[in-house]
């Protein structure tokens, strides 16, 4: 089994300059590894630092210390200290991230939102659109909505567009922040199926899921992050 993510003694503290510089420790001593084909679920109460850990792995948050090694094209790269252009490369071809909310660009059609990561990786427009269409189908977004921008969709529909986009590239690492939070039972089942299929292809997954049923279905391992929570 190859290690895809190796977090070593990572920590995160926010310094709130606008609140007279108070220090807000979030997590410290974060240590865990994720193998290819494994789904690790982070658990713990709200505010324990689950999303912060996910964001540090994606380099959306900076690390205050420690390492976050990512296997990118065969070699381990510490994303906590990587150059911006290296991080962009890692995001393009190694790490996908499904956030809690879709950040939609005005005017861009749903099908293009979903196809965009493929286009960025050099897939032809025709094939990208074809795959995007299949992904949207699977997530029960009717074809008549594909040419509309998702900004007008309901929360659950937007989240499904977000999931379609996140799963489309078959990247080796996938980070999921509450992917099923605003979905009904039928669509939750679709997402569970997507996760299972992605795992079989060898993708390493780190997820945050509050739904016990979903967690039980997808988790190979549960990491309780309260052990990393920094005392305020």
């Amino acid at each position: 089994m190859s290690v895809m993510i190796d977090v070593t003694n990572a920590q995160k503290t926010f310094t709130m300059h606008l609140q007279s510089g108070i220090e807000l420790p979030v997590v410290r001593g974060v240590n865990f590894q994720v193998d290819a084909g494994e789904c690790v679920v982070l658990s713990g109460p709200s505010g324990a630092g689950k999303s912060s850990i996910l964001k540090m792995i994606f380099a959306n948050y900076r690390c205050g210390g420690g390492r976050v090694d990512i296997r990118h094209q065969g070699t381990l790269i510490d994303i906590a200290t990587a150059e911006p252009r290296q991080i962009l490369n890692v995001r393009r071809s190694t790490i996908g991230y499904v956030s809690q909310f879709l950040r939609a660009v005005p005017r861009v059609a749903t099908i293009d939102v979903v196809a965009e990561p493929l286009i960025a990786n050099g897939v032809t427009r025709a094939e990208a659109n074809d795959r995007a269409g299949r992904a949207l189908h699977r997530l029960n977004i009717a074809e008549r909505f594909w040419q509309l921008p998702p900004a007008t969709f309901s929360g659950g529909e937007q989240q499904r567009v977000n999931i379609a986009r996140g799963f489309i590239s078959d990247l080796p690492i996938l980070l999921l922040d509450e992917p099923t939070a605003s979905l009904d039972a039928a669509n939750r089942a679709v997402v569970v199926g997507l996760i299972a299929g992605t795992k079989r292809k060898g993708t390493a997954i780190v997820a945050i899921v509050h739904d016990d049923e979903v967690r039980r279905q997808i988790a190979d391992r549960i990491i309780d992050v309260t052990g990393f929570t920094a005392a305020a």
């Binding site: 926010f14 310094t15 709130m16 300059h17 606008l18 964001k55 380099a59 959306n60 948050y61 900076r62 911006p84 991080i87 962009l88």
Partner: peptide, 21 residues
């Protein structure tokens, strides 16, 4: 300086935090 989403979502400097907020 940094990646755009990193600077906007996790601004480190006083002035950047003020801009973002």
């Amino acid at each position: 300086t940094g990646l755009t989403d990193q600077v906007l979502d996790d601004p480190a400097e006083h002035y950047t935090q003020l801009l973002v907020s």
